[in-house]
Each structure stands twice: as C-alpha cells, then as structure tokens.
C-alpha cells in the first residue's frame, strides 16, 4: 500500500485446484484470504466444456479447523463455454472438525448441472490468525515458561532481508503481534503472539541479525503439530 495505507494480509496467488480434464471441462483455481476478520475462499471458475454450466454448489469435508462455507456459492448466471467468473465464498470456522493429514488439508466437492467433482487444497494457516491474538505481556512470559522445551520448534527463515521494524509491520498486518523487542549482542529479538480461530495460542521469538539474511524463528505452542504450518506462513508473510 501507499503512504498511510496498511499493507494488508498476504494472499497467495491463485493456483489450479481442479483441472478441466478431471472435471468434464470445469476448471477451478483459487486461494484463501483473511480480509477484515473474514476468511474467504476466492475462486475462479472457467467453463472449458462445450455446454453451458449451471446449478453450482459447494461442500467441504470435515477438516482440522472446522472451516465451512458460510454462504451458498454465488453463481447467478449460467457459465457459458470459455467464460470465467470470479466468486468469493465467505467461510466460518464452526463447522465439524476432523484432524486431517496434513493438518491444513481441505477436501472440497463442487457440483454443477453436469456432475459432482472432488478436489483437495491446502490453506495457509495464517488465515486462521485472529484479530485478538495479542497476548498480555505477563501471560506471555508465564506461558513461555510453562510450555515445555520439547514443545519448542526452531526454524530458519532464509533470504529474509527485513529489519525488525519492517518485519513487525508485515507480521502485524497478518495478526502476528509483537509484544516485546530486545537487542542482545547486536541481534533483535522479537517476542510475538498469535491466536488461531480455535483458541490455540502460538508464541514466537524471531531473531534478526543485521547483515544476516537468515532469521531464526522459535515457536512454542501447546499443540506443537501446528508449528511447521506457522513457520510456512512466516516465510510467506516475510518474503512477500
């Protein structure tokens, strides 16, 4: 964004989730976004068949974080051959829960007048970072101490050419909140928190050394299986 305009949360470019050859001519590409506190599935539907497509509907299988369509798929007019439409589907997180492998896997069924089609996609876990994820400083210190060291995971974010202020701002626009910053022996240590929509808190320490393009991310969480997905989100948020 320009001067005075917040950068906004990072959104991965759309990718093809359902190739036309697997869906009798229906091609679906999409991505996920969190905008103003609402999770959205952003879809492009392309008709590569020789007949008109109508009667679209979408359904999700149970998934790790209860993602579920919060409205019907809004395709109001028939989709003509060679036509593409953009559809935004708002999602809620109060649907049925079932742990998926990988954790961020989502199985989707889309129907139209021709058939029902199935595909899987992966969502970035940062779409689940809640707006109220800034942990009280005292609670952070107590929680950091309380979570066993075995639950700490450490990662290297390579090619991260940001100073700590730029990193703080980028992360904050994705609901990763910096609670404290310290400089020890020339390196900046940022203490950060985020809260997933299901109430799981993640605590982070991000070390940034001037002149070193690699940052060290340490994550502490009572549900350590989420850590690698949080790391993937940090990489995407910091590099974009």
């Amino acid at each position: 964004g320009g001067v005075g305009i917040p950068a906004g949360a990072y959104v991965i470019p759309k990718s093809v989730w359902l190739p036309a050859m697997k869906a009798k001519g229906l091609e679906i590409s999409g991505t996920f976004a969190r905008r103003m506190g609402t999770i959205q599935m952003e879809l492009s539907l392309t008709n590569k068949a020789m007949q008109v497509m109508t009667d679209f509907a979408i359904q999700f299988n149970r998934n790790s974080f209860g993602l579920s369509p919060a409205a019907a798929l809004q395709v109001h007019t028939p989709l003509s051959p060679n036509q593409t439409i953009e559809v935004t589907l708002p999602l809620s997180t109060v649907g049925p829960v079932m742990k998926m492998d990988p954790l961020n896997n989502l199985q989707v069924a889309v129907k139209n007048n021709i058939d029902v089609f199935y595909f899987s996609c992966l969502y970035p876990i940062n779409i689940l970072f809640a707006e109220d994820g800034k942990m009280d400083r005292q609670v952070f210190l107590a929680t950091w101490k309380d979570i066993p060291n075995d639950n700490e995971a450490q990662f290297q974010v390579k090619d991260c050419h940001l100073n700590s202020e730029a990193a703080t701002n980028k992360l904050q626009s994705n609901n990763v909140f910096t609670i404290a910053k310290r400089n020890v022996e020339g390196q900046d240590m940022l203490y950060q928190s985020m809260k997933l929509t299901n109430g799981i808190w993640v605590l982070a320490e991000l070390r940034i050394q001037p002149g070193n393009p690699s940052c060290t991310l340490s994550l502490k969480c009572r549900a350590p299986e989420v850590s690698q997905f949080v790391f993937q989100s940090y990489e995407a948020m910091l590099k974009n």
Partner: peptide
C-alpha cells in the same frame, strides 16, 4: 508508563536465550 517489572523480565528472557 508504570514499571511493572515486565520490561526487566523480557530483558532477562532475551538474555537467557542468547546466552543459555
């Protein structure tokens, strides 16, 4: 701002993480 001891606690945490 009130010094609630937390500033010092974060300094100790950062220090202990750098020099365990």
């Amino acid at each position: 701002e009130l010094d609630d001891g937390l500033d010092e606690a974060f300094s100790r945490l950062a220090e202990s993480r750098t020099n365990p």
